[in-house]
Amino acid sequence: MPTIDLNSDMGESFGRWELGDDETMLGVVTSANVACGFHAGDPEGILATAGAAHRNGVVIGAHPAYRDLAGFGRRYVDATPAELRGDVIYQIGALQGLARSVGATVRYVKPHGALYNTIAHDEKHAPAVISAIQDVDPSLAVLGLAGSPFVDKAREAGLTVYAEAFADRAYTPGGELVSRREPGAVLHDPQVVADRMVRLVETGTLEAIDGSAVRIEADSICVHSDSPGAVTIAQAVRAALESAGVEVRAFADAPSAA
């Protein structure tokens, strides 16, 4: 039976600003990329999300970002490698402490937004992120863009790496994500998204934005929690995968809830 992980970004509410339906989404996905405060999230909300994930048996991953709260971490920050390494260590450590307080464990790291896209091909910031993860805990897995040089570099450094595809994002013929600034970059039709993900698991390919087929080898599928209708999309994806005989399960084992 083919298997796939289903993940989503969570813990991104801030104070009175609520983003996403974490409680409902945690009943659908198998891994939660939890914000660490630099692009979104406050300690109380992050703690609540970590606790809810643990109760639902969902694996928790750190979702560190550039220090860009106003821009939701979607803007490039020209930090020095030393600055970025410190920022990533700080964020992972913060989430580890919050997770530990509810009996949970952080099992992997998935960089967020502009940081994620930058390190996919960057020669300066990618090594800083890899070094930060190694220094905090080399047993942490890494979730990165399928087919990107970052995935290969992290593996070469000795980290356990899982490749990721995006359910609700369009791809270029070269296997990269279409910029959010471009029309059609984000997909909103639950059935279209679900059908694409079944094709991905069954054939290892997706239809690129120009109609061509692009090969994507992925261990995990991400559904963005801040997209309109995110929960409906995630539910449609999971239902379609399971109907096609695909087992949806986390790539890392979660400890049982107390």
Results as ranks from 00 to 15, higher is better:
223 V>D: 03
208 A>Q: 06
236 A>D: 00
234 A>E: 08
147 G>C: 14
216 I>Q: 01
217 E>S: 12
220 S>R: 10
199 R>S: 12
146 A>V: 03
185 A>N: 10
208 A>L: 11
233 I>Y: 03
195 D>N: 14
206 L>S: 02
172 T>M: 09
174 G>H: 02
148 S>H: 13
189 D>I: 04
205 T>S: 05
207 E>Y: 05
167 A>M: 06
228 P>G: 08
219 D>K: 07
172 T>W: 01
207 E>S: 08
168 D>R: 01
164 E>D: 06
198 V>K: 13
178 V>E: 05
165 A>Q: 00
148 S>W: 02
143 L>W: 00
215 R>Y: 06
152 D>W: 13
175 G>C: 15
164 E>H: 09
141 A>I: 00
142 V>Y: 00
224 H>E: 12
162 Y>E: 09
218 A>C: 10
234 A>F: 06
168 D>V: 13
230 A>Q: 06
145 L>Q: 11
199 R>I: 13
165 A>H: 05
229 G>M: 09
230 A>K: 02
190 P>G: 05
136 V>T: 08
149 P>V: 07
158 G>H: 04
207 E>V: 09
169 R>T: 07
138 P>W: 04
139 S>C: 09
218 A>H: 03
193 V>I: 11
232 T>R: 06
138 P>Y: 02
231 V>G: 09
157 A>F: 01
172 T>R: 00
201 V>A: 13
136 V>Y: 02
216 I>T: 03
184 G>L: 04
180 R>I: 03
148 S>G: 07
184 G>A: 06
223 V>G: 01
174 G>A: 14
157 A>S: 12
